[in-house]
Design a protein around this nucleic acid. Structure first.
Lengths: 133, 133
DNA sequence: GTACGCCTTCCAGTGCACTGGAAGGTCAAG
DNA sequence: CTTGACCTTCCAGTGCACTGGAAGGCGTAC
């Protein structure tokens, strides 16, 4: 399977697949006589794994770690479990932040919608936004 | 007021204040005879405004736009109102994404917690994560 | 006079995940 | 024989918001 086909099948751009190889996320594949990359089914499986792991919120660096552990023959279960729990905490934090920002923004938007631009005082930069934060 | 004092008062590192000036977010301040930056109260107000606007989720680029509009003498109200509404939409999208990821992660974590590492089959990269995505 | 802390500029790097483009090789169809 | 799709490498840029460090000037206290 050439890189274009792998890209097509996986939905990951060829450029990105080469990039994954470059950063050591994917192992260098076999090459055809003409130098083209030749991928087997494992490559697709790995790539799908990367997509799954990304969907789960892991960074490429973390995915590399999991992949490396596995290629050493150890089962990455414990490691992955830790990663998952840590990510859940992070997501909760981020959710809380976002919700706070949203409340902030909603309050500002309500204020903005009720405001006549003519009322904008000259001495402050923006009377909508000075209420933020 | 020298940059260190402004940094102290605002909580924004001096390095960052210089960076803001460099990208045109803050206007170049007066200089003392020795070349030190000399800030007035307006500078602190602007810096606070930047912090508020950032807290509201605006990017530095957007904040620059608001500041630029204001410095042209026009009230940025309408512009800001649009920004706010667009940001609210973005935040809702991001919230939905995050919540989906969280559900994903929770399901994976439950699976991981219930799993004995010895059960990890050799032929898949990680039986926890193949379920993701 | 020297030590220390503050200030200056400038250049470069961080993190994250790509993405673009140039210059050129390969292969099958028309 | 040329066109076009595909592949290669390499270098460089994107976006966002900083951050680090070197090399040197300034100002005050001891």
């Amino acid at each position: 399977m050439k890189i274009g086909e792998l890209a097509e099948t996986s939905g990951v751009p060829a450029k990105t697949i080469r990039y994954y190889e470059e950063i050591g996320l994917l192992p260098p594949p076999e090459r055809e006589a003409n130098g083209y990359r030749s991928y087997d089914r494992d490559a697709l499986q790995r790539l799908r794994f990367v997509q799954h792991a990304q969907a789960a919120g892991l960074t490429l660096r973390e995915i590399s770690q999991v992949l490396a552990i596995r290629s050493e023959g150890r089962a990455p279960c414990v490691h992955v479990r830790d990663l998952l729990h840590r990510h859940l905490v992070q997501i909760d934090e981020r959710l809380a932040e976002l919700r706070a920002t949203k409340r902030e923004l909603q309050s500002l938007a309500r204020h903005a919608d009720a405001l006549d631009p003519a009322d904008c005082p000259e001495d402050v930069i923006c009377s909508i936004l000075v209420r933020a934060g």
